[in-house]
Amino acid sequence: MFEKIRDIFFNRRMENTVEENVKEDIFLIPISGDIINLDDVPDEVFSKRMMGDGFAIKPENGQVFSPVDGTVVGVFPTKHAIAIRSNFDVEILIHFGMDTVNLNGEGFTVYVKEGSSIKAGDKLLKVDLNEVKDKVPSLITPIIFTNLNGKSFSYTIGKVIAKEKNIVIIK
């Protein structure tokens, strides 16, 4: 019995300690799907990293969550892209799909506005994939670090679930 209680206490204590140490730099996966390299994005603006480096996700649903604690610094009028400044001073652009700007917001529901304070895991956007998928060349969603402010990042390619931790690491 004592061992079980000790293990429970130890595990909680470890979780709290780790959470306190990395809380500020946490990065959650914003969309469920498959992470791919920007080189495989069918748009040169992203694949040639003209807006910044990052990765992309082939979404399996249209739910988009904040990857970080921070502030929404931009919501495009066409609702297809949201820009965030994290509390650890990294700027992130989530751009849902290719040529989705041409839909003028059709099929998109935004849950935040410019200036909103957000927490990692907050719902940002919902995209009706059935309404959008046949109207654009691709649903691949680039996640771009427009300004890393001297930090670096790494990520793991493969299947991911929204709000999953430790797939994208920013140092």
Rank of each mutant, 00 (worst) to 15 (best):
V110D: 06
S154V: 00
K4R: 11
I144F: 05
I26Y: 06
D53P: 03
F55S: 11
K171H: 03
I170Q: 13
L103A: 09
T109N: 13
K135S: 10
E114G: 14
E20Y: 06
N104G: 05
L148T: 03
I35R: 00
M14V: 08
I143K: 05
S116T: 13
G107Q: 11
V136K: 12
G150C: 03
F76R: 12
E131T: 14
T146H: 13
T146M: 03
K58A: 07
L103Y: 15
K126P: 10
K79M: 12
S138W: 12
L139V: 12
R85W: 03
I31Y: 05
S32V: 09
V72D: 01
N61F: 13
P142L: 02
I82W: 01
N37A: 00
V127H: 00
V75H: 04
S32L: 04
D39W: 09
N130Q: 09
N21Q: 15
V18Q: 09
V73M: 11
D122P: 12
T78C: 09
I118T: 08
F10D: 05
M1K: 00
N21I: 13
V18S: 02
N21A: 15
L38R: 12
D134I: 00
K4N: 03
I94R: 05
T141V: 13
V90C: 04
I8H: 07
V168N: 06
V101I: 15
F27V: 15
V68K: 01
N16H: 03
L139M: 11
L148D: 03
F55M: 15
A162V: 02
N166P: 07
I170L: 10
T100L: 09
E114L: 15
N130Y: 07
N11P: 05
H95K: 05
F76N: 12
V90S: 07
T156Q: 05
I170M: 01
L103F: 08
I167W: 11
V68T: 09
M51C: 14
T17R: 10
S66P: 13
F153I: 06
D40L: 15
I161R: 13
Y155E: 05
I161A: 11
I35E: 10
E106I: 03
H80E: 12
G150N: 08
V72N: 07
V127E: 04
M1Q: 11
N87W: 05
D40F: 07
V41S: 02
G107E: 10
M1V: 03
R85Q: 01
V101C: 10
F145Y: 15
N16G: 03
I29W: 03
F65Q: 07
G54L: 07
S116P: 13
T156V: 14
I26E: 09
L129T: 04
G33I: 12
S86R: 02
I29S: 00
S154R: 14
I92W: 06
F10Q: 01
A162D: 13
I35S: 03
I5Q: 06
F55K: 13
G158S: 09
E114D: 10
E164C: 09
K23M: 04
T109H: 14
V160E: 10
P30W: 11
F88V: 08
K133R: 14
S138G: 08
T156C: 08
E164Y: 11
I31G: 11
L38G: 00
T109L: 15
K123D: 11
D134H: 06
N61L: 14
N104F: 11
L148I: 14
